[in-house]
Write a protein that binds this DNA or RNA. Structure first.
Length: 302
DNA sequence: CTCCAGGTCAGGT
DNA sequence: ACCTGACATGGA
């Protein structure tokens, strides 16, 4: 179907260590952890059963499950890198002050927000590597979440390193610079293949580009990202928010958020850029978390 | 068959 | 500054 694998499999068979407690500071609900792992922030986590998921990010593989008391546990492959546990804590933001952030959202006396929060109690915003978040959302325009997941799986299987049997990392941008547009189209990317090929070429000429952007505050990070082909304000905001490089300041506005904000806050007639500015000003440093609650709420309830 | 999906861009007012 | 259509693909 797609281009052949470039790297030979050098993995051992996949077996799992015992479950470990994650000691999150705040309790999760089922929908809270579901929307964190597999609700459109990341696209490489899949549900194993009612309360457990498996996913790949960077070169890490893990399983996460929710226990009856709202606590989380994680499992890792035998023979894993020893930094997978801290990497997972980082991914899920388990050491960030979510208790304070939830309190601030609740104190805002915003009935629409309180209602949205009740839909996914415990929801966190993820912290992917910036390049991986960028690649993920370059696949997203005019696609549904299951399709984005399928395309990214195609990309990983075609061009990414095989970490364990049948389980591939996403390719680095440096690796994608050696993939031509036609091969990307084979992953069912459609017209988005051009954006990814073009972005890979630009990043190959500026190896420090993403690292530099990741060190910038929100107001300065957005513009350079939108100079990459296929990256407008929305994808730039998603890449920044779901990589955590500038905290929770970004407020990505897609069709769902645009409709929801118009209805909830009377913003009829605003274009997406104006809605994004409104969201950032209304919710301040935790705008991105507020955005995610609205996104979850409008998709689950309407 | 038709419609639309976690948008962006070029080309027109 | 705003408005419009094109852009691939697949599922409802």
């Amino acid at each position: 179907m797609t281009a052949p694998l470039s790297s030979p499999p050098t993995h051992s068979p996949l077996t799992w260590e015992d479950w470990l407690p994650l000691h999150a500071q705040t309790p999760f609900t089922l929908s809270g952890i579901a929307e964190t792992l597999d609700g459109g922030q990341m696209f490489r986590w899949n549900r194993l059963d009612e309360c457990s998921w498996q996913g790949v990010w960077g070169r890490h593989l893990a399983r996460v499950r929710l226990c009856g008391d709202g606590s989380l546990e994680a499992a890792f492959p035998k023979g894993r890198d020893s930094d997978s546990l801290p990497a997972l804590r980082q991914l899920l933001g388990l050491d960030l002050p979510y208790t304070d952030w939830y309190a601030r959202l609740r104190e805002s006396d915003d009935s629409a927000m309180l209602s949205a929060m009740s839909v996914a109690e415990g929801l966190h915003i993820v912290n992917l590597p910036l390049g991986e978040a960028l690649l993920s959302f370059l696949c997203s325009p005019m696609k549904r979440i299951p399709q984005i997941k399928q395309v990214l799986d195609n990309i990983a299987r075609s061009f990414g390193e095989e970490l364990y049997e049948g389980i591939h990392a996403l390719p680095s941008w440096a690796a994608l610079a050696n993939v031509d547009e036609e091969a990307l189209r084979g992953c069912r990317l459609g017209y988005r293949a051009k954006s990814i090929a073009g972005t890979a070429r630009m990043l190959a000429q500026r190896p420090d580009f993403l690292e530099t952007v990741a060190a910038l505050p929100y107001a300065e990070a957005r513009k350079p990202l939108t100079e990459l082909p296929g990256v407008g304000g929305k994808i730039a905001d998603c890449a920044l928010l779901y990589s955590g490089t500038c905290g929770l300041a970004p407020f990505p506005v897609d069709t769902w958020i645009s409709r929801a904000m118009a209805k909830l806050y009377g913003l009829e007639g605003m274009n997406p850029e104006q809605t994004a500015s409104y969201g950032r000003e209304r919710f301040g440093e935790i705008a991105g978390l507020a955005q995610q609650f609205i996104f979850v709420s409008v998709r689950k309830i309407g």
